[in-house]
C-alpha cells in the first residue's frame, strides 16, 4: 500500500494546504509519494522533498503544466496510478476539479472531502453542509480521496529528505485552454477562505459602528462577517452574511462580536477551530459554543482589543 498525493502549487511555492493533505495521507499509509506537475517548478519539488512524511517526490516539468488544467494532469496521474492503493488531493477547487476525472477514468467511486481517516478504507466525511457526518467504507480496489485541509494539521515543512524522481510528460489535452487567472486583489481575505474572521451582529447598533470591526480586521488581516440580523438591519451588505442562507466558514479563529448566536448563525461557523464571543448579555447562546467568552460592552472591548493587539510584537497573518 502506498499513497499518491497530487500537489498544488504556484510553480514557485507549494500551496500551504498541500501540507495538511500530506499529513492526512500519512494517516492512511506511511508511504506517501507526492506527484508535482508544473513548469519551472524545481523549487517546489525541492521544498516538497523536505516535508516531513514525504517518501518520494515525482516531478514532471513541462510548459503544458504551467497552469493547472485538470485535463492535462489526469494522463500523468493515470500513468502512475497502478502502483498506488490511494490517490489523494485537497478538497478545494483544485482537488475537487481534478480527482473525479481521475476516479472515473479508473472506474472508482470517489470519497470526497474527508475530515478523518478511520482506516485505510474507511473515512469520516461531512454531508448536508456539515449537518451530519457519514462514516463510509470504500469497497473499490483502489481509493480516490479528497481531503478537507482544515481538518488536518499541516505536516512539518522540514525534516524530510525524499528522493526526487523525474517523471514523463503526459499527453496534452487540446480541447481545454487556460486563458487567465485573476487573483482577487483585495486588502482583505475572502470570507470563505480567511484564516481569521471577525463578525458583527446587531449589537453593533449601526452600520457606522462596523468601523470598530474593520479596525480589528485590518490588524489581524481578517475577513469581515456579519449575522443575518446585522444584514437585515442594513448595517452591512449580505455578501458578508455567515449562516444558513449565507456562507459556511471554518477559519482558525472566529470572533463573534455583538452576535447573540441565533442557531442559523451558529450553523455557519460552529466548525471554526477557535471561537471567541464578545457580548454584553452573559446568557447569549453564542457563549455555549465559544472557546473564549468575554462578557463586555463591545464599544469598550473592541478598542481595548485593538490596543492589546498593537502591544503584541508579532501577529500571525
Amino acid at each position: 500500500m502506498s499513497v499518491l498525493l497530487i500537489a498544488e502549487h504556484s510553480n514557485k511555492e507549494l500551496k500551504p494546504f498541500t501540507l495538511n493533505v500530506i499529513n492526512a495521507a500519512t494517516k492512511i499509509d506511511e508511504d506517501v509519494h507526492v506527484l508535482i506537475m508544473g513548469h519551472n517548478s524545481d523549487p517546489v519539488a525541492k521544498s516538497l522533498s523536505e516535508v516531513s512524511g514525504v517518501k518520494k517526490v515525482i516531478h514532471v516539468d513541462n510548459l503544458i503544466y504551467e497552469n493547472y488544467v485538470a485535463e492535462n494532469y489526469v494522463p500523468v496521474i493515470l500513468k502512475y496510478a497502478d502502483k498506488y492503493s490511494h490517490i489523494v488531493s485537497a478538497a478545494n477547487t483544485f482537488g475537487k476539479n481534478l480527482m473525479p476525472r481521475v476516479a472515473a477514468k479508473l472506474d472508482i467511486s470517489q470519497v470526497s472531502d474527508i475530515i478523518k481517516v478511520i482506516s485505510s478504507d474507511t473515512f469520516l466525511r461531512p454531508i448536508y453542509a456539515g449537518n451530519a457526518f457519514a462514516t463510509v467504507k470504500s469497497n473499490d480496489p483502489k481509493k480516490c480521496v479528497t481531503v478537507r485541509p482544515t481538518s488536518f494539521e499541516p505536516a512539518p515543512s522540514s525534516g524530510g529528505s525524499a528522493e526526487i524522481e523525474k517523471g514523463d510528460t503526459g499527453e496534452e489535452y487540446s480541447s481545454t485552454k487556460f486563458v487567465k487567472k485573476e487573483e482577487i486583489k483585495s486588502d482583505r481575505p475572502e470570507l470563505g477562505t480567511a484564516r481569521i474572521v471577525i463578525s458583527g451582529g446587531r449589537g453593533l447598533q449601526s452600520g457606522d459602528n462596523f468601523k470598530l470591526i474593520t479596525a480589528v480586521a485590518d490588524k489581524l488581516n481578517a475577513a469581515i462577517g456579519a449575522s443575518r440580523a446585522a444584514v437585515d438591519a442594513g448595517y452591512i451588505t449580505n455578501d458578508h452574511q455567515v449562516g444558513q442562507t449565507g456562507k459556511v466558514v471554518v477559519p482558525d479563529l472566529y470572533i463573534a462580536v455583538g452576535i447573540s448566536g441565533a442557531i442559523q448563525h451558529l450553523a455557519g461557523m460552529k466548525e471554526s477551530k477557535v471561537i471567541v464571543a464578545i457580548n454584553k448579555d452573559g446568557e447569549a447562546p453564542i457563549f455555549s459554543i465559544a472557546d473564549y467568552g468575554l462578557e463586555a460592552d463591545l464599544f469598550e472591548a473592541l478598542p481595548q482589543f485593538l490596543e492589546e493587539l498593537n502591544k503584541l510584537n508579532t501577529i500571525q497573518k
Binding site: 449580505n238 444558513q244 442562507t245 441565533a262 450553523a267 447562546p285
Partner: peptide, 25 residues
C-alpha cells in the same frame, strides 16, 4: 425560566426547526 436546551428552548432555535425562509431582498 431560561431554556435548558433539553426540554425547553429559545425562540430562534425553535424557528430554525420550522424551516421557514423568505427569499432575501
Amino acid at each position: 425560566p431560561k431554556p435548558d436546551n433539553i426540554i425547553t428552548f429559545d425562540k430562534t432555535s425553535s424557528v430554525y426547526l420550522t424551516g421557514t425562509n423568505h427569499t432575501d431582498n
